[in-house]
């Protein structure tokens, strides 16, 4: 492993300044569960790791009671999300995703921001945030800008972040009434498992509790970046939701996915899993909506 210097700025400005000084040879670090592995394996050889741990405010998990907007600091750990009753009750899709990441040890240090910016197609944390129409607040040398989480990713390990830019937080707009959401990581083991395929579904129903007002179907490991199954979403919008409709949506989502064969799993099986789990997660959404009524 190549040696590196560990920098520990106390403010965002300081972090950006450090990055500016060392630009090419510096790397931001959240919990380090991706970064340190890469450094150890020699895939990445930074001279400086700029830890974001000491920066106040990045670790805040907060729901604005007045607006209903949820704000998740980039440095919020998976364990913090997993243990939050508010997340468990109001954002089950986030809970489903983060509570099955790696192991307890990984969740204790791994952050939601690192999960997004690492930008792998298998990032469990990305799927719910996309499904919830999350918006990422970025801060760089030129100031702040916002971008939808779904538009963060370019290709594996590559985001739209500019040099020196960092992720400050993710905001989730207030969920509409009659909304349910669920995620499943389909894998072979119960822990320490990257998804063979990840399926997240969010449904909002009209007041009649039948008609679909909004649908989000988001898939991990189905394309080079986390993706939304727009065709399937469009198909559901305005329809009365029942099992047959969800089966159909599953087929459409499977068709529009860009799954492929890999050492980890076969494309045909991944497609099959999308089909099955769009239905299962959809039904789970309906159940959640009914239970919350």
């Amino acid at each position: 492993m190549k040696a590196f210097k560990y920098l520990s700025p106390k403010t965002i400005e300081e972090a950006i300044a450090f990055h500016g000084q060392h630009s090419e040879t510096a790397k931001y670090m959240g919990g380090g569960t991706d970064v340190i592995v890469k450094v150890k394996e020699g895939w990445m050889e930074p001279d400086f790791l700029i830890s974001l741990k000491k920066i106040k405010g990045l670790c805040e998990l907060h729901k604005n009671d007045a607006t209903g907007e949820l704000s998740i600091g980039a440095m919020v750990t998976h364990a913090t999300l997993e243990k939050s009753l508010m997340i468990q009750n109001e954002y089950p899709i986030i809970y489903d995703a983060v509570s099955n990441i790696g192991s307890l040890q990984v969740r204790n240090v791994g952050t939601i921001g690192g999960n997004l910016i690492n930008a792998v197609p298998s990032a469990d944390g990305a799927i719910p945030l996309i499904a919830l129409d999350g918006v990422a607040l970025l801060h760089g040398p030129d100031g702040e800008r916002s971008v939808e989480v779904k538009d963060l990713f370019i290709e594996p390990y590559k985001t739209i972040l500019k040099p020196g830019e960092l992720l400050k937080k993710i905001t989730i707009p207030p969920p509409a009434p009659h909304t349910g959401s669920a995620y499943i990581k389909f894998g072979r083991r119960a822990a320490m498992e990257l998804p063979l395929i990840g399926i997240g579904v969010l449904l909002t129903l009209e007041d009649d509790l039948k008609t679909c007002a909004k649908a989000r179907i988001c898939l991990g490991v189905a394309a080079p970046t986390p993706m939304r199954a727009f065709d399937a979403e469009k198909f559901l919008a305005g329809k009365e939701i029942n099992e047959e409709i969800l089966i159909e949506a599953g087929k459409i989502a499977a068709d529009e996915s860009k799954v492929r064969d890999s050492v980890r799993g076969k494309a045909w099986h991944r497609k099959e899993m999308i089909r099955v789990h769009v239905r299962r997660m959809g039904l789970k959404c309906i159940e959640i909506i009914k239970n919350n009524r």
Binding site: S103, R188, R189, A190, A191, M192, L194, V263, R264
Partner: peptide, 21 residues
């Protein structure tokens, strides 16, 4: 393996049972 080459030389892709399994 692929043509004699080990394709999963790590505990992420070699699916040893974990304590949770």
């Amino acid at each position: 393996t692929r043509n004699g080459q080990n394709m999963n030389a790590n505990f992420r892709d070699y699916k040893l049972f974990t304590a949770k399994d």
